[in-house]
Design a protein around this nucleic acid. Structure first.
Lengths: 155, 155
DNA sequence: ACCATAATTGAAAATGGTTATCATTTACAA
DNA sequence: TTGTAAATGATAACCATTTTCAATTATGGT
């Protein structure tokens, strides 16, 4: 009863890896495909839960791990103790940005400046590193660390 | 803001924040000051333990948190579940580098390429972001995520 | 130097994100 | 349709980091 007709080309990809395409996996991919931001495992769990309440948090973690190994998604860590996930190489995603992270209050500021200037360097770097280290790059993360304006004066 | 040139004047800095300079804190700073790489809390703990066996892991965590809040050290997360620490703005440190992180086997490759090209952009970006967001930047982290050569072909 | 006292410490317990275990269910090739 | 290996989900385990709390210690005022 494979009623996966009409769904994204994920099915073939899974089978190409000798894995099975299942409902939980489809739901998880669907959530990743329809969001603007990089989500935590728990956020993904809750979103899937809305229309598929039998989903288990364990399955979410396992699926994300698998998708990362397959190169379908990126796994980031912005320093707050929770991993974040997003589809790899997806231009529909949130406007490209990076982070300012406060080492005192741990607040995270997204910034969008210098996207263009950065793009050239990043692309050049990616290309060279891919070749040098035989590494397939799917994404990157740039974090600046320091003290925000509220913490710079107090301890 | 207190200034700290070289090693010792940390005592005055602590007092400037209304904190006390203690033996454990001195030992921890000494370890951070005499290493080439960004260490985990546990690594710092073991190094201090060598010559100060009564040190507690809790104290290491607490001191690192305090030092980060004071802007003396940077706290990084390269995605392996353990925070890393290094003195802020220290040029004696390990040759500047960034990371390639494999989303499958989680191996981390340090690369040193493009340090010069990157430097200009980073400095320019830092300066602008500092002003725009009134944020005191102490360091940065650049990670590329993807699949290493050993994982790119297998699942 | 001596107190007073608030800051600091360290052992132990708690926390929270993530992973391993395992019995049950499910996808899918034959 | 069925056999079987893959996948699921509830639960327990894991592990880095925090919290708790009684004991210790640094420092300013006396």
């Amino acid at each position: 009863m494979p009623r996966f007709a009409g769904l994204p080309p994920w099915g073939g990809m899974f089978r190409g890896y000798g894995r099975r395409i299942t409902v939980p996996r489809q739901k998880i991919l669907s959530v990743l495909n329809s969001t603007d931001k990089h989500l935590t495992a728990e956020e993904i769990y809750f979103k899937v839960y809305q229309e598929y309440p039998t989903i288990g948090l364990t399955t979410v973690y396992r699926t994300l791990e698998l998708l990362a190994k397959m190169g379908v998604i990126n796994k980031f860590d912005i320093g707050d103790g929770k991993a974040r996930f997003e589809l790899a190489g997806d231009d529909k995603k949130e406007k490209h940005h990076h982070h300012l992270i406060c080492n005192s209050c741990h607040r995270i500021i997204d910034y969008h400046e210098f996207a263009d200037e950065e793009k050239d360097l990043i692309e050049k770097t990616e290309k060279a590193l891919s070749k040098t280290y035989d590494f397939k790059i799917h994404g990157h993360l740039i974090n600046f660390y320091g003290l925000c304006k509220y913490c710079a004066m107090k301890v």
